[in-house]
Write a protein that binds this DNA or RNA. Structure first.
Lengths: 193, 193
DNA sequence: CGGACCATGTAAGCGGTTACATGATTCT
DNA sequence: AGAATCATGTAACCGCTTACATGGTCCG
């Protein structure tokens, strides 16, 4: 269900077509919630059917049309109420740690390669998230700018602060994962593997 | 697919019935990979069909029977080869951070409650994982003891070390999440919300 | 005219969740 | 006799993945 709310968060700022939304999505919310086109388009249709959005066909070139989605009052209310709900935490399911617990079954070189892949993955993400933080601080994020422009003055600081808070958390998590994998590499050496 | 390998990890130690497995599962692997009974039983059947396991009916009481699963050579090989593969990392999808990025939409009290729930969740998990570490260090884990008894002397240190490494990583992650949520509570105060 | 990009999906399949269902055994 | 626990599932559903499909527009 989170996809729905990720989309509402964007459409709360301005109306967009599925394509626009999909592009914006990739460069913003996707850093915390990934979704491919093939999931976005059908979800928009469902959201319209559920009354959260109102779609309207817009001319595109001479013969083409595209559908522009506007958030409705019901959509705003739904989003707000989701934002006030407390999420339930799903049970643990972590393939990386599952494997790590049985590393004695792996070839030492393979275990090393897996830890390096872990480091690589979180290094890339950390950079990604760091870029988002830089965008927030440096004011070069398009959607955020629009959102800030619309918001009452007294909310602007909070809006920025929450985004930074979010990405800082992800960065800290990435750093923790990197440190963990590095300690794993040290451990492999210590064990003479 | 991880469920399959989580089950193989247990069945590599000793043959078990679905019920035994399910109980053991809850008290061991489930701390890194949760699975309910309704998923375990059908998966065992599929694994037998795929030749990873061999099942055999065992008498239980006067009229009942239960099915005991033994890992096959194919099963061992499959597990080993999974252990040597490098996992692909799925794209980010984190509902908690998604919500945090839009916290200005939530009631301050609700945002606080959500951060507290985050802290509560990871506090409980940390305790859980700490217990596992204590079991490993204190030698009061049944399956681990069996696994150690079977393993050649020179592997025993590694087996313990990898398990500790795994749970230490999860504990560190939990602590990071708690610290993050606490900084969120401070932020809410600072913003006067 | 061709290539990049705009625009929007469908279909099959998979792993996991939730709720439900049934009956035997063992213990007190 | 009744409760706890042993034993094993099925069915419906849901969100997501992967692969495939189609056609229009804009620019050089």
């Amino acid at each position: 269900m989170s996809l729905r709310y990720a989309l509402l968060a964007l459409l709360a700022v301005e109306p967009m077509t599925g394509y626009d939304l999909s592009k914006r999505f990739q460069s913003s919310v996707a850093h915390v919630w990934h979704a491919p086109d093939s999931q976005i388009y059908p979800e928009l249709k469902r959201m319209e059917k559920d009354g959260l959005l109102q779609g309207r066909d817009v001319a595109w070139g001479s013969r083409g049309t595209k559908r522009e989605y506007h958030i409705t009052a019901v959509g705003i209310e739904d989003f707000r109420s989701w934002m006030n709900e407390t999420l339930s935490y799903p049970p643990e399911r972590d393939p990386v740690h599952l494997k790590a617990a049985y590393f004695e079954w792996a070839e030492p070189d393979s275990a090393r390669a897996q830890l390096l892949a872990h480091i690589e993955n979180f290094t890339a993400r950390r950079e990604d998230w760091q870029e988002k933080v830089d965008e927030i601080l440096g004011d070069n994020n398009d959607i955020l700018a629009k959102r800030l422009a619309q918001a009452p003055e007294e909310d602007r600081e909070s809006i920025r602060a929450f985004k930074k808070f979010t990405y800082d958390g992800l960065i800290a998590r990435a750093e923790q994962e990197i440190a963990w994998a590095e300690s794993g590499l040290v451990l492999l050496d210590q064990l003479g593997r």
